[in-house]
Design a protein around this nucleic acid. Sequence first.
DNA 1: CAGTATCCGCGATGATACTG
DNA 2: CAGTATCATCGCGGATACTG
Lengths: 95, 95
Amino acid sequence: MGGKWKGLILFALQDGPLRFGQLRRAVGTISERMLILQVRELETAGLVHREVYQQVPPKVEYSLTDFGRSLNDAMASLGDWGERNIDRIEAIPFG
Amino acid sequence: MGGKWKGLILFALQDGPLRFGQLRRAVGTISERMLILQVRELETAGLVHREVYQQVPPKVEYSLTDFGRSLNDAMASLGDWGERNIDRIEAIPFG
DNA sequence: CAGTATCCGCGATGATACTG
DNA sequence: CAGTATCATCGCGGATACTG
């Protein structure tokens, strides 16, 4: 299961639900198209919940499922490693 | 830093150094070309050490550096998560 | 055995325009 | 606001043949 944005999406949702636009800004430079595609895959995988509020203007909130939270927890040690070694990582040519 | 084989390569080297051919078989169906490309990137990143034995027939051994071992350790909890949830993961459509 | 070299398809991603 | 639709592109990775 690829997608270079999925990790960032899950990470962005850690601190609570976000609306589509908020999530887009939180992730960074992702295009609308890719955000939709990847968030839908995460929904299919049961990692993210999509809540539609039938109103105008449209409102959709994305949040982590328990399953998604468990994955994020498992990724925490990897995140810590990244922080600890950020200097070495950034020093990698081209990387 | 992409590459769908890097994780498998690091994992395969966990139990000690491997020669090129051994590593190739350990990783599975990877082509020679990709194995070289990715192992060289790992070497550049300082995660893998490449030891050349000047002899005939040629012999090259790949092993984890301390840095590589530290990354593998950090990935361990992710691996555990994968094992615990393998059923749910395999049930994902197309996944 | 351990690589190199070359060709090439295909899927992932980006850009842009449009819609309910 | 939250999508959809379409087109263009780019590079990863597979296949194959060759080399020290």
